[in-house]
Design a protein around this nucleic acid. Structure first.
Length: 273
DNA sequence: ACCTACCTGGCC
DNA sequence: GGCCAGGTAGGT
């Protein structure tokens, strides 16, 4: 489900609920989703939330005792808040019991999501986190262009790579490529300077639009309070294989790049300059 | 740069 | 039954 805009949407709803609240206990129904579940259960008890942050598709809940809870929703994960008295969701995997009878639920049909507890001061040493590039919506144009010049390969592969910039997945890659007017199979090295700038602006605009629309709800993304996003109603190419381009009415093409379905408009998205 | 595995559910 | 799915890690 979630890419940067979906995680950001979740973050915005989560922050006011968690700040100054306290974890009372954790129920781990799927231990394989948690790094050292016994430790998490033991250490988190009674800790107050100091801060809630995001980088790329990761969420960070900074706690007292200089500990950070790291969450990644992967493909089908989502966070929900409910009262103890309210009915369970269908795929609750981990429950964080908070004060005031609230439960923060990590819901995830496919159980691919991951949670771990890590010292706040050493996050930059975390084996997965240390590989991440800058957050895709915060990166400056200057930094983006510099990082781009160090990369080879095709546009789609580079955008999906979290060590280039963090937060872009399959939906927003295809959308950003469309917005930039560039064929996702183009090689980085073949881009002119104006195409590189256009690429940067398209990425930022595409992610901002996703956030403004509170995320893309294709099959199962819902916000913290169970509300779907609206971005699925205005996608240019993602999920529209074989349909007509909304801009020029050409039939959209599709192929697989890096084992991911890729859709683009052969007329609006240029192959070579 | 490419696989494949990890899981479950929905759809044909 | 087979194929597909918003992601990442770990292998060659």
């Amino acid at each position: 489900m979630p890419e940067l805009p979906e995680v950001e949407t979740t973050l915005k709803a989560l922050r006011p609920l968690l700040l100054a609240n306290r974890f009372l206990k954790v129920e781990i129904l799927r231990p394989d989703m948690v790094t050292d579940p016994a430790k998490v259960r033991r250490l988190i008890k009674g800790l107050r939330v100091i801060e809630v942050k995001r980088h790329g598709k990761y969420l960070f809940i900074n706690l007292e005792k200089k500990l950070t809870l790291i969450l990644h929703l992967r493909m089908s994960g989502r966070l929900a808040i409910r009262r103890v008295s309210e009915p369970e969701l269908r795929h609750e995997r981990i429950r964080f019991h908070l004060e005031k009878g609230l439960i923060l639920v990590f819901n995830d049909p496919r159980t691919l999501g991951r949670i771990s507890l890590y010292p706040t001061d050493s996050l930059c040493k975390h084996p997965s986190l240390k590989k991440l590039g800058p957050d895709a919506i915060s990166v400056s144009e200057k930094d983006f262009l510099k990082r781009l010049s160090n990369r080879k390969g095709i546009l789609k592969a580079v955008l999906l790579n979290q060590s280039f910039v963090a937060g872009i997945g399959n939906i927003y890659t295809d959308e950003a490529c469309f917005k930039s007017g560039l064929d996702p199979r183009r090689k980085i090295g073949g881009l002119s300077i104006s195409e590189r700038r256009r690429f940067y602006r398209a990425i930022i605009a595409t992610l901002r639009k996703g956030i403004r629309n509170m995320g893309t709800s294709i099959s199962d993304f819902l916000g913290l309070h169970g509300k779907p996003g609206k971005n699925q109603n205005s996608l240019w190419v993602y999920g529209r294989k074989g349909k007509l381009c909304r801009r020029c009415k050409t039939t959209l093409k599709s192929t697989r790049i890096q084992q991911r379905t890729t859709v683009w408009c052969p007329k609006c998205q240029r192959k070579e300059p």
